[in-house]
Simulated scan of single mutants.
Amino acid sequence: MSHFTVLVAVTADSPEEAETAVSEALRPFDASLEVEELTDEDGETYWRNPQAHWDWWTIGGSWRGTFQARIDAKTDDIMVPEPRSANEDAYLRPFAVDGGRAGMLRLQAQRDRASNAALEDWDRYAKVIDGTPQHEPWSTFAGLVKDGGGTNQYTWDDARRDYHNQPRIKGLRESQEYRRWLLDAPEDEIEGRSRDEYAARKREQAIPGWALLTLEGEWWEMGKIGWFATSDRTDDSEAVYLTKANAYIDALDPDTWLVLVDCHI
C-alpha cells in the first residue's frame, strides 16, 4: 500500500464543479475498473485495468493545505481544506488551500519557500556529516545478500546492521536534525548534490507532486509506484518529469484549476 500526490488540472466554474471534474478525470485510472480480461497460468480468468493508478483517493488528504492562495482570491477561486478528525487541529498557514485557479495560487512563492528550505537543510546536513568518512551506499551491502545458502550466509539483517553502523549513517540517524525524516533517508536526498543543485531540485518538486493528470487526460509521473512506497523512479526519470510538468503548469490558462489529490494504491 502506498500514498502519493497527484496534481489534477481541470476546468470548472466553482469549487464544487472542480471536485466533480477531478473525480471524472481520475475515473479511467481506477484499479477496480474491468477493462481487460486475462487468463493466468492455471487457466483462471480475471479482469484488470492496465492503466490503473489508484484504488481510492481524496482531495488534500495527508497533504491538505499544501498550496497558498493569493490574498485577493475569492471563495469561487479556491478549494478550502476539509477538516479531518485525525488532524483537524493541525496548523495550516494563512490562506492554505488544496487547490484553486492557477492564477490565484502563489506557485512561485511556494517554489521560493521550497528552495530556501532546501538551502537550510543542505547546510544542516553538511554540519552533521562534517568530519565523517564517505559512506558506502546501501546497494553495496544489499549486493552481498544471497538467496539460499548455508548458516553463514550474509543476511538482510547483516546488511542493515553494517549499513547503519557506518560513522556517517550512524551520526545522521542519531542527529536531532534528521529524526523527523520518516521516508527518504537524508543521505539519499542530499548526498552527491551541491548546495545549489539540491535547492534547484526542491524548487522543481514544489508544485507537480508525484504525478500530474493533464487537461487532456494524460497521466504523467516520475515513476511507477508500487506497494510500501516502492517505485521504479530514477534521478533521470524524475528530472524529465519535473521539467515537463513544471513547463505544462506554467503554461496553463490562469483560470484552470489545479487540485492536489492524495492517492492510494
Rank of each mutant, 00 (worst) to 15 (best):
residue 225 I to F: 09
residue 143 G to L: 03
residue 87 N to C: 09
residue 222 M to K: 13
residue 80 V to C: 03
residue 216 E to C: 03
residue 10 V to T: 09
residue 142 A to L: 13
residue 113 R to W: 15
residue 138 W to D: 00
residue 119 L to S: 08
residue 209 G to C: 07
residue 238 E to I: 01
residue 139 S to Q: 14
residue 113 R to D: 14
residue 46 Y to L: 11
residue 89 D to K: 07
residue 89 D to G: 02
residue 95 F to S: 06
residue 261 V to M: 05
residue 2 S to K: 06
residue 96 A to K: 06
residue 179 R to M: 11
residue 135 H to L: 08
residue 29 F to E: 09
residue 239 A to W: 04
residue 245 A to T: 00
residue 67 F to E: 03
residue 47 W to I: 01
residue 33 L to W: 06
residue 79 M to Y: 12
residue 120 E to L: 13
residue 19 E to G: 10
residue 226 G to R: 11
residue 218 E to P: 00
residue 95 F to M: 12
residue 58 T to L: 10
residue 194 S to T: 15
residue 141 F to M: 06
residue 260 L to S: 12
residue 5 T to A: 12
residue 114 A to D: 00
residue 34 E to H: 10
residue 157 D to C: 02
residue 184 D to Y: 10
residue 125 Y to I: 01
residue 83 P to Q: 07
residue 69 A to V: 03
residue 98 D to P: 01
residue 73 A to T: 04
residue 29 F to M: 07
residue 27 R to M: 12
residue 177 E to D: 15
residue 100 G to R: 01
residue 210 W to F: 07
residue 159 A to M: 00
residue 206 A to W: 05
residue 158 D to E: 04
residue 262 D to Y: 05
residue 157 D to A: 12
residue 212 L to K: 03
residue 198 Y to C: 03
residue 117 A to I: 05
residue 187 E to A: 11
residue 155 T to H: 05
residue 243 T to I: 02
residue 227 W to E: 13
residue 16 E to V: 12
residue 112 D to C: 06
residue 31 A to V: 08
residue 83 P to E: 10
residue 264 H to D: 10
residue 260 L to G: 11
residue 39 T to W: 05
residue 124 R to A: 12
residue 1 M to F: 00
residue 153 Q to W: 05
residue 107 L to Q: 08
residue 78 I to D: 02
residue 254 P to D: 04
residue 182 L to C: 08
residue 159 A to L: 01
residue 241 Y to K: 03
residue 170 K to A: 12
residue 112 D to W: 09
residue 230 T to G: 09
residue 72 D to S: 12
residue 35 V to A: 07
residue 261 V to K: 06
residue 231 S to M: 07
residue 212 L to I: 01
residue 27 R to F: 13
residue 151 T to W: 14
residue 54 W to M: 09
residue 16 E to D: 14
residue 124 R to Y: 05
residue 57 W to P: 04
residue 153 Q to K: 15
residue 230 T to F: 11
residue 17 E to L: 12
